[in-house]
């Protein structure tokens, strides 16, 4: 886990993100090694598992994007029946993950996430 001041700053960013859009149900900052750094994910989720899964998805996405000559990875978007999972890189060592409603206005969510990811990268 991040040191308290860092952790406070990251939690503030995540809470601001959720407050800025009713479409974002939860969000988390995860290291590229798959460790949860900060999160406001619902209680009851296995955070270690979710963090490892998200990091694995992002790594695979980066590999696939490069293998298929699509350039640097921008985001991973997983659309489920009940909502979406979105991952964006944040600096070299981390990523920002959000869970959104199924009807989320994605353009706005992407924009908010991009800004938050930049802020997170500065802190980390």
């Amino acid at each position: 886990m991040a040191t308290t001041s860092k952790s406070d700053a990251l939690n503030t960013i995540l809470n601001t993100l959720s407050a800025s859009s009713g479409d974002i149900e939860a969000s988390a900052v995860i290291s590229s090694d798959g460790l949860m750094i900060a999160s406001n994910f619902p209680a009851g989720l296995d955070e270690d598992r979710v963090a490892a899964m998200a990091a694995a998805l992002l790594s695979m996405g980066e590999r696939a994007s490069s293998e298929l000559a699509r350039g640097d990875l921008d985001q991973i978007f997983v659309k489920g029946e009940n909502g979406n999972l979105i991952l964006v890189t944040s600096g070299d060592e981390g990523m920002l993950t959000t869970l959104t409603t199924a009807s989320a206005k994605l353009g706005l969510v992407f924009l908010d996430m991009k800004r938050a990811a930049e802020e997170i990268a500065r802190i980390m």
Partner: peptide
């Protein structure tokens, strides 16, 4: 190498 995952991440996936 195939997945781009670091060894540490793979170990985390295994333990989770």
């Amino acid at each position: 190498t195939f997945t781009g995952m670091s060894r540490k991440l793979i170990e985390n996936c295994i333990s989770s």
